[in-house]
Amino acid sequence: MTTYPDILPQLLETLKPYAKKIGTLKETTDLVSELGLDSLQVMQVLLKIEDQFDISIPLNNLPNIRTVKDLGMEIEMLLKA
């Protein structure tokens, strides 16, 4: 079963192109305030991640996803479901 420790490095790799401004991505990096993603970029990133992990992320859960870790935990939960 894919768990958070397996997911994190893949997720960091996917987010890397969006982190050029801040340099290093961490688990605590805030996706909106630190990466500065606008709503369009958020949608593009999510679609990429959905295909990468073969999951669908509900819009209802987005307000609870602020950091890289939150996103990783969400992916883990959806993979378990």
Partner: peptide, 10 residues
Amino acid sequence: CRLGGAEVLR
């Protein structure tokens, strides 16, 4: 979509 409380996917 939000008002009904269903899970919403795009």
